[in-house]
Design a protein around this nucleic acid. Structure first.
Lengths: 244, 244
DNA sequence: TAGTGGTCTAGACCACAGC
DNA sequence: CTGTGGTCTAGACCACTAT
């Protein structure tokens, strides 16, 4: 491919920027199987010649593909096609309220409980806080139209969100509120199947024999515990879905 | 080069590259709340002065933060702190075999069924293929040590993976095989709770009353249907976990 | 030593936004 | 119009790898 870039030549219409064309070129090679996992691909200087661009432009293209985990690069050695990610699925769990609204339905919620507690020994270890530290506790049911689809049982660190008990949960979900007071969260999650206890079943208006999809999430902001949410979804009327 | 950058001054030890220091600076401003959602942040030229670096260096820092969805940028206008992503959780579901091995356990599998079928009208619509197209069908149980933890019921497009029926599934999982013949997959998934039918329950060695965590995934490569996998996990001995 | 990628500079031209 | 970000250049020095 002599490839005279054909990029801004003549009076041709707009074309993607050069770095994008190089990205597309590499993507096509990988997708077509011409370059396979582990293969050494052309050097930056070689691609500079091929595309008639400067090294910074090639570098940007390859760097972005590396950030996307499609390539791996080694100083002094070269650029290689990365190990495929074994069809790992990236799932995005969004705010329940946002999710419902995007389906064109109405979100509402009911606060079942709102108080404060002291951290137990077990909680202190799990959340990396001091035993006896003040925690706020909320239990809220979320409705899609008139149907309960999530019971959100949440513990919040009082220092991270001092105003937690005074919020208006009709206007803002705990999720949305916490994103404001504790940005850039990190943490862990699990998704599993559980049977609801009597209170959960009653709040969600399901039989105690109805298994639930339960997501548990512990979040930290600035390396300090922020919140632990346990979200119960009736298995007969809720599933996680998405694209990747 | 006048500009002694203040960054690598003196005989100080290694310091992160300039673009990373700028990223850290911006991250700290956001995390501390000094810059809030929607705020206009300093221009590239202003940051060039502050950090005594060239514009390309500042541009790289801000561009990467924009790719991470922490900033939004508008030509002619400026750079703003992005809307927070409402604690949306990115979940990575990996290859079952890889998952098991990383826990330090032994993965094995048993092929229960391997044959070919013709696409029904319903499948043809869902997969965007011709009715009657040739599909391969496999049912495989995956074991962690000696315990069944996943039943993988999979349909594969015969054109996308012609050699599917001849693979050695002890050496390579279908997932791993498909990543090689159909790279860069896209698609949809769902995660839900279901009761197993008699065959699934028997294969997983669970009671028919034991609810399962079921992940369904349809994948396309090069815009053509590749595979539809339905993965059943006993709810009493499996959960999805991860970090973000 | 020669070749690779990692980073950085000091300019440049462009499209677009707001005045 | 000025100021913003989007892209690009033609160099440069460095750390690292392979030989």
């Amino acid at each position: 491919m002599p490839a005279p870039r054909a990029i801004t030549t003549g009076t041709a219409k707009e074309s993607p920027p050069a770095y994008q064309q190089i990205k597309n070129f590499v993507l096509e090679k990988i997708q077509s199987g011409a370059w396979k996992e582990g293969d050494l691909i052309p050097t930056e200087l070689a691609l500079c010649e091929t595309f008639k661009v400067s090294r910074m432009t090639v570098n940007r293209a390859l760097r972005e593909l590396t950030a996307d985990q499609l390539l791996v690069r080694y100083k002094g050695s070269g650029t290689y096609v990365a190990q495929p990610k074994f069809q790992s699925t990236l799932i995005e769990i969004r705010s329940i309220a946002q999710d419902i609204r995007e389906r064109g339905h109405r979100h509402s919620s009911k606060v079942l409980l709102l108080d404060s507690v002291r951290a137990s020994e077990l909680q202190a270890r799990r959340y990396r806080i001091a035993p006896g530290a003040l925690l706020f506790h909320s239990v809220i049911v979320h409705y899609e139209n008139e149907t309960a689809i999530q019971l959100e049982d949440r513990l919040v660190d009082a220092q991270a969100a001092p105003g937690y008990l005074e919020q208006d949960w009709a206007a803002l979900t705990p999720n949305e509120y916490l994103m404001r007071v504790a940005p850039l969260p990190t943490g862990q999650y699990s998704i599993e199947v559980k049977l609801p206890n009597r209170e959960v079943a009653a709040a969600l208006d399901i039989a105690p024999t109805q298994p639930c999809l339960v997501m548990d999430r512990v979040t930290f902001s600035k390396n300090a515990f922020t919140s632990n949410a346990t979200m119960w979804h009736p298995g007969n009327r809720y599933k996680f879905t998405g694209r990747y």
